[in-house]
Structures are given as structure tokens and as C-alpha cells.
Design a protein around this nucleic acid. Structure first.
Lengths: 341, 341
DNA sequence: CTGAAAGCGCTAACAC
DNA sequence: GTGTTAGCGCTTTCAG
């Protein structure tokens, strides 16, 4: 207790002096890494407590080569730049990872900027990279440094890196498309995001394959995740007008789904009667929109739990697994894809 | 690129050898902290790039005494132990702080456990402590170490510490109580949480003062934030039965509000007709409950922004402010307190 | 069971 | 403009 801000921290040397022993004895008494007599240990502990000694983590890490800290890098640009609304996905993943790390009593560092030399680099023993891009540069950089990395979702160019937690999109996306087809959709438009990550790539691949199998012409377009809500209607408007308008839309970014529903309404199209609508991530917007919008829940809490587990296993020297961990997203069917009979 | 995991990191010494200069020249060429000829600088940069040199952050911090990292400690127990549902508040604050720190290009560390000696301590230049308890031990510990601390909400026992972002509860809680009174409530029950922090203390104080001013008998009870949803109904049931049941309830934890509405319904009481209901923090549960529940939004995004701003100012040597920063929570009036005429 | 001393990689005085 | 060197605080040999 007590003590004013800015005062010099207590060092091991001071503890040693006070306890009347050498600094190595202090180190060993406190760490228990070699036998020290009970009496000495007690004296050292007492001195340390009285002085309020707290070992300097930098000195320790410099010596041992480990910091006990894990880094976290969230790749998608919009995660940081996005509006508060858009932040839900980000918050959910970050919050889950932080919670899981706290449970495991390991510090987590949000890595500010790997490439900017003006930004101090970060003392981490390993790093979780979430939603890497295809051929991700940050990922390559870390791996190049020899740092143990675990990814949340795979780098789509390196899908088989074993230290990863992946989402198994195909069955879920197919289930969604089949559902739309069952509801009568014959002209499904896919609006992907522009970030080149697994979340945009895999569902698109599945969609194209599905269209081919069903002998339906694929229709795709892009809608950047970074758009402001105000931009969406005018981009979507043209897609909804004309005789060849789609009868179903699957949009990646769920925050845009309600805006699409509104645009449709402005053209006299009702959801789900005239247009089926689904999103590839879940959010409050999707749930509370009227009508509620069918969405794929990426189960961030589960992703976080497994990623942390994998990272800590890797740091404890576990064997390289044969393949990534696969999790299945949850399809949340709601009114927006349920045609009233 | 390239390079396999586990290989020894490149040190400044190797860069110096490769560039054919001394290590101090490398240091200065890279940091620009003293004039080095353009030719030498170029050679050094090239050598560093070829080798994939990344300065060891521990060595640097040990030397300079600063890590460029800020810690974050979230005090409420339920923040970590809570259910995924309860995590919304936590996620929102953590996500906002992380986002804000990333914008400011400063690393953020979630501090795992300050007291557990088995947990490595953390190299932080300062620490944000969110929602401290009355006479908070972690806060005292950090201050005792001389570490610059900024709090999100105040330690209720030390309300005047200037390095804090506080919420100005009284006017908002009064507005809520007045609103309930306007809607006919004459017997308002306050269900506080059990965490001894500002969020529980301040509204309670305001409530008691308000009751006295209105000459109404105060009625309060506790409902721990850590309860599982299943526990709530049986605890609330007795409060809702009998002739002296309240005609309005203000419950701190917003996740419990819908459960209280259900308990009321089970006893034949409708919200808002027979019972007004409001919560002291906002959440998806409150917004999407039927009816939607009036709640106080703690504006975590704003809290985060100001706290980060304050911390970085403090670390840059800004003067101690005269008083804490005050923010006003937002009252979200919804159907649960709107009596149908 | 305890002490002395090397050295982790870096920055900043201090020479030249 | 560049090199040499001390030393940040700790853990860990190596001696005793």
C-alpha cells in the first residue's frame, strides 16, 4: 500500500540487502527452483512483502526468453475502422478470446501494428491471428520470425496449416441454399464482402458449386464490409429493379441485410414474400430486424475457446496436430426466408 | 518470409556484423536518434531487412524503462465468470477500449491476475482499471507500485481521484424515477447488484435521496450479478406476491429484467400495466424483450474513448487534471415504463 | 544450502 | 559520424 506515483520500483537487489542474502538466493527463494532453507525463505518473503517487490517482467523475459503473453491480431480492416454497429462481430470475438485467456491466467496483448516501425514491438510468446487474408502478410511475417502462430479461420491460400481453428462452411451454406430453393428461390444473388478471407471465399466457392449442380446460373456481386449504412441503398437499388431481379439474396455482412430489406420495400418488394434474404454472419441487426433475418452464426465463443486452447497447447510443446480443428457454423433460420403459404 | 518455427531470433549484433558497423550504429540508424550518414543508414536497413531483424522488446524495455503497453483490468467478477449473455457489457467495454488503443497505435494487455504469484506479471507503462470496488485492492496495489492508473468509473471510496472517467448518475437516475412517478408508480423497488462499485452505489444513493424528497418509503433488495438465469425467478417471485407488492421495479442487471417480466406474468401481472420495469444497464435482452425494457445506457464506447485519451495523456506527462471527466449515461425509455392510457 | 558472476539484447553515455 | 562500453534486473550456471 501507500507510495506515490512515479517512484522507482523495488529491485531484487534491495530485497536481497534487506533480507541479508544474495540476489540469487532471493530469486530461488521466491521461485522455489532450488532448495532454500525454510528460515531464509521466510526472511526473503518478508523482505519482499515489506518492500512491495514485484519482479521486473522485462528483465525476467529477457533472461528466460519467454514473456507468458500471447498476442492477438485481428486482420479485417473494418474490425477497427468500422462503425460501432459493425463492431459487434469484432467485440464478440475479442471479448471471447480475452475471457478465455483470463480463465487460463495468461496475459493477452492486442498487437497494435506489426508493420509500422514507429510502433514498439510486442513481447509475445505466440500470436493468434484472426481472419487472415489470402497470402496474409502479417501471418507470413510472424511465421518468418519463428513465432508460434494459431489462426482463427485459415489463410485461404494455406488452408492446411494445422495450427488453426477453421469453420466448416460448405454443409451450412449448402443447407441455406437448399432451404432457399425449397422456399421457391430459383435466382439467388450472392453479395460477398471484399475482404479476401475464408469467410468471403469459402461460401462463394460453395455457392458456385451448388449453382452448377442445380444447373442454375450463378449471380454474384461485391458489397464492401467497410461501407457506411448510407451507401448501401444506392448500391443495392439497381440490383433489385428490372425484370431479372433475383428472388433471393444472400449477403455476407449482416448489418447490411436490414438495409437491403428496406431498399426492397422502397421498390414495393416485401421480404420474404417477394424476396428471400439471408446473411452470412449473425448480429443484433439481423435478429431484431423486421422481419428477423436468417443468418449464419459463426460461433465466435467456440472459435475463441478452441483457438486459445490450441495456442496454449502449442506453447506447452504439444505435437503438431494432423489437421486444423473444424467447427460448424450455426444456421439460424428466421422469417426472412420463410415464405408464407 | 520463410523460416521455420523455433529458430533463434536475429539480434542487433548480427545486423551490425552484416552491415559492417557497430551495434550502436545499428541502434541509432534504425531509431534515428542521432545523425548517421545516409549511406550507413541504408546499409543497416538493408542488413536488417535481409535478416528479418526485429528488436527484442524486452531488452529495449529493460533498458528504456518503458514498454509502450497499457494494461487493462476489469474488476467485476461476473465479467469473467458470467454467462455468454452477461458478457455483453464486458465485451462492449473491452472491445471499445481495444479499438481505441489500436487507433492510437498502442498495445493493450489484458492483465490476467495481479495477485496470483504464479502468474507472470506484465510489462505495462500504465493501467486502466474498469469498475473498481470500494477500497479496491488491485487499484491500491498498482498505485502503491507507482504505476500510472486511470479508472473507468471511480473507486467509490475515493471518488475524487482525478485520473478517472466517471458517470454522472444522479440526474439520469432521478429522471428515471421521476418518469416512473409520472406513470403512476408510488412504490418503487430497487434491486441492486451485489458488487460494491459505483454502478451499484451511486444509483442507490440517488434512489434513497429521491424517496426521502418525495416522502416515499424506500424499498431495496439485492440480486447478485452472478446469478444464473434459472435462479432469478424463485428469488423474485416472493417480491411480486402479496398485497404490498411494488408497482415498479428498477433492477440493476439488465439481463434479469426480462426474467422479472416473466415472473410477473406468471403471477398475472402485466408489464407495464400492472408493473413498471427498468434496468440500470442496457443490453440486447432489454431491447428485444417483449415489451422492450427501459434502460440506462452506460455509453461504454464513450467511457473507453475518454479513458484511453486520459491514459495516453498521463503517460505523455500531462498535468494532473483538477477533477475526473464526467459523462452522462443515456436513458432509453421503452414500453416497459410507458403505461397505456 | 548459499554466493559470485555471467550474460540475455538493447540504448545511451562517453570517447574518438 | 562512428565505435566502445556500462548497465537495465533478472535467472542460471558454476563454485564453495
Amino acid at each position: 500500500m501507500g507510495g506515490e506515483a512515479g517512484k522507482r520500483p523495488v529491485t531484487i537487489r534491495e530485497v536481497a540487502e534487506r533480507a541479508g542474502v544474495s540476489i540469487s538466493t532471493v530469486s530461488h527463494a521466491l521461485s522455489g527452483r532450488r532448495p532454500i532453507s525454510a528460515a531464509t525463505t521466510a526472511r526473503v518473503r518478508e523482505a519482499a512483502a515489506e518492500l512491495g517487490y514485484d519482479p521486473n517482467p522485462n528483465a525476467r523475459s529477457l533472461r528466460t526468453g519467454r514473456s507468458g503473453l500471447v498476442g492477438l491480431i485481428l486482420r479485417p480492416r473494418y474490425a477497427v475502422a468500422g462503425t460501432p454497429d459493425r463492431a459487434e462481430t469484432f467485440n464478440r470475438l475479442v471479448g471471447s478470446i480475452a475471457t478465455e485467456m483470463l480463465r487460463r491466467k495468461t496475459g493477452l496483448i492486442h498487437v497494435p501494428d506489426l508493420h509500422d516501425p514507429a510502433v514498439a514491438s510486442v513481447p509475445m510468446d505466440g500470436c493468434i491471428v484472426a481472419h487472415p487474408y489470402g497470402g496474409d502478410t502479417a501471418l507470413a511475417e510472424l511465421v518468418g520470425r519463428g513465432l508460434p502462430v494459431v489462426t482463427v479461420e485459415e489463410d485461404p491460400e494455406q488452408p492446411d496449416l494445422p495450427w488453426a481453428v477453421r469453420l466448416d462452411y460448405p454443409p451450412v451454406v449448402e443447407a441455406l441454399l437448399d432451404h432457399l430453393h425449397d422456399q421457391g428461390a430459383r435466382d439467388v444473388l450472392l453479395l460477398s464482402g471484399t475482404e479476401d478471407n475464408a469467410w468471403n471465399r469459402r461460401p462463394r466457392e460453395t455457392y458456385l458449386a451448388w449453382c452448377e449442380r442445380r444447373a442454375l446460373p450463378p449471380r454474384t456481386a461485391l458489397l464492401s464490409e467497410g461501407l457506411t449504412p448510407g451507401d448501401v441503398p444506392e448500391l443495392v437499388q439497381p440490383l433489385l429493379s428490372g425484370p431479372d431481379r433475383p428472388d433471393a439474396i444472400v449477403v455476407a455482412t449482416s448489418d447490411f441485410a436490414p438495409l437491403i430489406a428496406e431498399s426492397a420495400a422502397a421498390q414495393g418488394l416485401r421480404v420474404p414474400d417477394d424476396l428471400l434474404l439471408a446473411a452470412l454472419t449473425d448480429s443484433e441487426h439481423a435478429r431484431t430486424s423486421i422481419p428477423p433475418i436468417t443468418a449464419m452464426d459463426l460461433t465466435h465463443e467456440a472459435l475463441a475457446e478452441r483457438a486459445v486452447e490450441l495456442m496454449l497447447a502449442r506453447l506447452s510443446g504439444a505435437e503438431t496436430p494432423d489437421r486444423p480443428v473444424f467447427l460448424t457454423p450455426e444456421l439460424r433460420l428466421r422469417e426472412s426466408t420463410q415464405r408464407r403459404k
